[in-house]
Design a protein around this nucleic acid. Structure first.
Lengths: 155, 155
DNA sequence: TGACATTGGGTGTTATAACACTTATATTCG
DNA sequence: CGAATATAAGTGTTATAACACCCAATGTCA
């Protein structure tokens, strides 16, 4: 199996710097893992972002979350959450209600259908995670998580 | 600075598994690093994918590369390389010539303008990498690279 | 040789992302 | 109070990604 990046990129020369090599490894790994999860979600017509919205709404309880809160919690930057939610609403996965206390806010909650869907997907997604990363032991996973967290932590 | 994922996601509960936590950390880190590089490339009107094409063409020399070779070397899956190259050709960055030996092939090469642009960007991109990751030491970077490589290597 | 499969490139169309802008409500403070 | 500012959501438009499909050139093999 092709896993070395220099192999995949057919690079003769070494990387310009460890920084660059680390960056490209993060990017490549994200692509590989993301594609795997997409294969699980695609039969249900969900993108990874939509799945993450479902999960965060499940965690948020009955009050749901307003649009900007959803946007800020997303892993990936997403400038057009309104229409993302439009599509999910059309699909019957979420429901939106304008708040009465602050009429600027619109609270989005999971529908029963959305809740059922995300519950169904849990096992499949967990299975895919294990298929992808199951060959790493606990120590390796913890180290990886620590280093990635550190990479995002300046100061 | 917000760096812990549970903090960013406002999660009360711990992650479901180390696998999931690792996946989300990879995804989040990719977003943060990608966004930083985008800020460097945006003034030149380039996406990260286009920049990677420029770099790989520079490395490929005078013969250039055919479309599928470019597609296969890309970090991110990109199903529509033809039109990506169309845009780069319109921008005067690359040039395409149908091969005479095998008339199915179209070789893409860097133009002088494309070459100059990618050369100019090297320092800015390297600087951004250092700004982003400069607080990690060599050992940490190497370990991170190893673990990410391992994560992509099944068997 | 000639039918069939394979490979490489491209196109048509739809869906989604990105960017700038608008409207409605709430807050601040002279 | 009331004008100015800030905040939240959404819209219009363009660019790009995604998906299925097509055509041309080459390779394969009976």
């Amino acid at each position: 199996m092709t896993s070395s990046l220099r192999d995949q990129l057919r690079q003769q020369k070494p990387f310009r710097s460890l920084y660059q090599e680390a960056f490209l490894n993060v990017a490549r790994t994200e692509t590989v893992l993301h594609d795997g999860i997409d294969r699980v979600l695609q039969p249900k017509g969900l993108s990874l972002t939509q799945y993450n919205v479902l999960r965060m709404l499940r965690g948020a309880g009955d009050d749901g979350l307003c649009r900007n809160e959803i946007r800020d919690r997303l892993i990936t930057r997403m400038p057009d959450v309104s229409r993302l939610l439009d599509r999910m609403e059309e699909g019957g996965l979420v429901s939106r209600v304008r708040s009465t206390e602050d009429r600027r806010l619109v609270n989005t909650t999971l529908t029963k259908r959305g809740r059922t869907l995300v519950d169904q997907l849990d096992d499949a997604v967990a299975g895919e995670h294990e298929r992808q990363l199951g060959h790493l032991n606990q120590t390796q996973l913890k180290t990886l998580i620590e280093l990635l967290t550190l990479a995002r932590t300046k100061e």
